[in-house]
């Protein structure tokens, strides 16, 4: 799931686990521990019904986290996802209401979302400002567009067949969950094992060196932002199907929850690290914490406070870990410290 790739048993024995892999394992342990605690405290927690609720509550963030992982690994960030989500929902809704066939409506919504991603990447390149500012501007404008095209009113009146995406079941599981699992495996596999996927890590790790190594940085980044936007769009389509309506209020503050989940999942906001597996665990971790709030009867208004605290905590933790790694390296065996630092 992370980066111990070469598969040579001897190497793995010599190095045991990379720091990233150790972190992911630790996170998995935390998730399991949290689940156990919750199950012990609240017997109804382990209900299959509650488990499903828990998973479905964060299904939209989960879709978005897949693309956000790629963006953050590349050293960027995308705040516009929380506007793309309702945008895609509304576009789908308007097309369906106008009588478009379901696949066409979904296709157009996803294409439009992909276009937003391409716009983000292009503006980032042309204006040469941090993607955070570019995507902030996109988020704002797009939220305005959402209001304008709906007049602020929810869009409803969808055909029965459309509801399957959000409410249907496959193999005894919610269809959206199955779709997510398939996408997570595919994107995770691409990011970890495909040339383009690995180039995302190279760009995030050292852009200049990536260019010198022949990586087409701009093209890869366009693909990354298009992927991120498209997945936010897909989340929007799923949301429209789940609620059988589309509203500008969808996805409020979801960008923050998604970034938090990815950061918790082990991706550094400086780029170059992170994995889809870690991000999925991060989403799960957030979902459980939020669910725990629900269970214990604490107001759901606490959610924003919790995500704020968690994003700061995750970043501080990652920074402390990076610092520790550096100092360990500086005094590591076989090192000549004088040469290491004098330059």
């Amino acid at each position: 799931m992370t980066s111990a790739h070469t598969g040579r048993v001897a190497d793995i024995a010599r190095h045991r686990l990379t720091p990233a892999a150790r972190y992911t394992l630790g996170l998995a342990g935390a998730v399991v521990g949290l689940l156990a605690i919750m199950a012990a405290l609240y017997p109804q927690f382990a209900d299959s019904a509650n488990v499903e609720v828990l998973a479905m509550n964060f299904i939209l963030e989960a879709f978005m986290a897949l693309g956000m992982t790629a963006v953050i690994v590349s050293g960027g960030i995308d705040l516009s996802v929380s506007a793309v989500l309702p945008f895609a929902a509304i576009v789908t809704g308007l097309l369906l209401r106008a009588g478009a066939p379901v696949p066409i409506a979904i296709g157009i919504a996803l294409l439009a979302s992909a276009g937003i991603g391409a716009l983000n990447a292009t503006m980032r390149q042309v204006l040469r400002v941090h993607p955070f500012i570019v995507t902030l501007a996109t988020m704002l404008s797009l939220k305005g567009v959402n209001l304008v095209i709906t007049g602020g009113a929810p869009v409803a009146g969808f055909p029965e067949s459309f509801a399957f995406l959000g409410r249907g079941r496959l193999l005894g599981l919610p269809f959206a969950l199955v779709l997510f699992a398939a996408l997570a495996v595919a994107i995770g596999w691409l990011l970890a094992h495909h040339r383009y996927g690995q180039q995302v890590y190279l760009i995030g790790g050292n852009v200049r060196a990536a260019r010198l190594s022949g990586v087409n940085v701009e093209r890869v980044l366009v693909l990354v932002y298009v992927l991120c936007s498209s997945l936010a769009g897909l989340a929007g389509v799923v949301a429209a199907s789940q609620y059988v309506s589309a509203s500008t209020g969808f996805g409020q503050n979801s960008e923050l929850r998604v970034i938090t989940a990815v950061a918790i999942g082990g991706a550094s906001l400086n780029g170059g690290t992170g994995s889809v597996g870690g991000s999925v665990l991060g989403v799960l971790f957030l979902a459980i914490v939020y669910n725990a709030f629900g269970m214990s009867g604490v107001s759901t208004y606490w959610q924003d406070v919790v995500s704020g605290v968690m994003v700061l905590g995750a970043v501080l933790l990652a920074q402390a870990a990076a610092r520790e790694g550096r100092t360990r390296r500086a005094v590591g065996p076989g090192e000549r410290p004088a040469a290491a630092q004098v330059r």
């Binding site: 190279l202 050292n206 060196a209 990536a210 010198l212 190594s213 022949g214 990586v215």
Partner: peptide, 16 residues
């Protein structure tokens, strides 16, 4: 011109 978080093998063959 190295990628700190990538493996030795990936650094040697980065992009190739």
């Amino acid at each position: 011109g190295l990628f700190p978080n990538r493996s030795v093998a990936q650094n040697i063959f980065a992009g190739r």
